[in-house]
């Protein structure tokens, strides 16, 4: 049961930080995520807008252990229009502790200044039990701020983990201004999910 919690928690963290997987060319991103079970710090660098490489440090509060992942995200497809952007990404990661612990998957999003939708699928392979996760996300911006303003998004996220078996749906609020982003979600099972991001 402990291991299941560990895997579920790791998966939850991984899914949450996929919102901005690649920066602009030469850009770096620092992320921090915290909930009742885990603290995570993830840094990634984007040599081009096509891919990012990064390191994620996860502190497991439940087992009082630390894990380190090497991550790669690649932009498979992007469609820019005047009023929207659509993305499709491939992602992968290897644990530095054990190369048999890894994951791969795809996720995508489509957004306008008013609407956001996203999905993701991930297959996690490890020494204990392989599992998969999928999620969908829908959001709306209650107002359309100008460049440099304080921006707000209201989202609903629903996810299914093959280890747990049922869908979880919970609200997420996202705020950003300048290079800072703050996201907070709540679910009775996973408790508070707090996400900070700084891009430079």
């Amino acid at each position: 049961m402990g291991m299941l919690k560990k895997f579920f928690c790791s998966l939850f963290l991984i899914s949450s930080i996929e919102a901005r997987p690649i920066s602009y060319s030469g850009g770096s991103t620092l992320m921090s995520i915290s909930d009742n079970l885990k603290d995570s710090t993830y840094y990634h660098y984007s040599p081009t807008y096509k891919y990012s490489i990064g390191v994620e440090q996860v502190k497991d509060k439940f087992f009082d252990k630390k894990f380190t992942y090497l991550r790669l995200t690649y932009l498979l497809n992007r469609k820019n229009t005047k009023n929207s952007q659509r993305n499709l990404y491939f992602q992968s990661a290897l644990s530095t502790d054990n190369l048999n612990d890894n994951f791969y998957g795809m996720h995508g999003d489509w957004e306008t200044r008013r609407l956001f939708s996203g999905f993701g699928y991930k297959k996690v392979i490890n020494n204990f039990r392989d599992f998969a996760e999928q999620y969908f996300q829908l959001g709306i911006a209650p107002y359309q701020g100008n460049y440099g303003d304080f921006h707000t998004w209201i989202l609903m996220k629903t996810r299914k983990n093959s280890l747990v078996g049922d869908w979880k749906t919970y609200p997420v609020l996202k705020f950003f201004k300048g290079d800072f982003l703050f996201e907070i979600g709540y679910d009775s099972d996973v408790d508070w999910d707090v996400h900070l991001m700084y891009r430079f």
């Binding site: 602009y24 850009g27 952007q85 957004e111 200044r113 100008n146 460049y147 950003f176 290079d179």
Partner: peptide
């Protein structure tokens, strides 16, 4: 479509010494 995503445009142009000022009109 997104302020956060457009930040890189400003940073990239500001590296050009002939650029004095930049403004982004998202709308």
């Amino acid at each position: 479509v997104c302020d956060f995503c457009a930040r890189g445009i400003e940073k990239t142009f500001k590296k050009d010494k002939s650029v004095q000022k930049i403004d982004v009109d998202l709308s």
